[in-house]
């Protein structure tokens, strides 16, 4: 018989027993029948299932993620990018040219350029390959805790659409905790994103941010 010991929205430490006889879970580990938290985080209980949302931790590349990377090196026919993760991302020259070995890759992306791209492949030691690069020019990059990015995007992108609508900024959210903001009321956007990051574990965040944005916009008129 399965049983859940933790309550909804409870904050837990590593080593705390959350439940018995439930299927395995990310951020948890199994020992016999027990499901034990492996990281500090917040428990979400939905009916008979349980999820542990971590509050901190490194970004590990996952297929399908959009990430923002900085070019750190050029090789024959490929680039190496830093994606705010323990693992560097490789991007092939074929993404931009038909015969990258006979062309100067610097003319496309040079060291220090900032790109957004999608992770197409991750191998067994977590090394990713990026595709579909898009050079980000101007604007600024905000670094946030990668584990709190889901709150910045919101359910069905609700939070992101709210931010874009109210401030008129262009925003690209990288799952790796880098957010590119350009145009519109940038200082307000940045303040809002920082607020979301800080209050990520609390509920009713979209309403709170809507109020904050309104107050900012009114105060400056």
């Amino acid at each position: 018989m399965s049983r859940i010991y933790a309550s909804h929205k409870q904050l837990v430490c590593p080593g705390q027993v959350l439940a018995i006889d439930l299927p395995g879970n990310t951020n948890c580990y199994r020992e016999g029948r027990e499901i034990i938290a492996a990281v500090k985080g917040q428990v979400r209980v939905q009916g008979k299932s349980l999820k542990l949302v971590p509050l901190a931790g490194p970004y590990i590349p996952k297929v399908g993620d959009v990430v923002i990377g900085v070019v750190i090196d050029l090789f024959n026919g490929r680039w190496l990018l830093d994606i705010n993760s323990p693992y560097y991302c490789t991007m092939m020259g074929e993404e931009v040219s038909k015969n990258p070995l006979h062309e100067d890759l610097k003319s496309y992306f040079d060291i220090g350029d900032i790109l957004s791209m999608r992770i197409a492949k991750v191998n067994e030691v977590n090394e990713p390959i990026g595709v579909k690069p898009w050079k980000l020019e101007g604007g600024c990059i905000i670094n946030v805790n990668p584990r709190r990015v889901p709150r910045i995007v919101g359910k069905k992108k609700s939070m992101l659409n709210l931010l874009k609508e109210k401030t008129g900024s262009k925003i690209v959210v990288g799952q790796n905790g880098r957010i590119w903001v350009k145009g519109g009321r940038m200082e307000i956007t940045i303040d809002a994103i920082k607020t979301i990051e800080r209050f990520a574990p609390t509920s009713g965040l979209t309403d709170r941010i809507a109020k904050l944005l309104d107050a900012h916009l009114r105060g400056e008129k």
């Binding site: 590593p14 080593g15 492996a38 990281v39």
Partner: peptide, 11 residues
């Protein structure tokens, strides 16, 4: 280590 969010069996 726990603060850094690194998975561990226990403190």
């Amino acid at each position: 280590l726990a603060d850094a969010g690194i998975p561990m069996k226990d403190l």
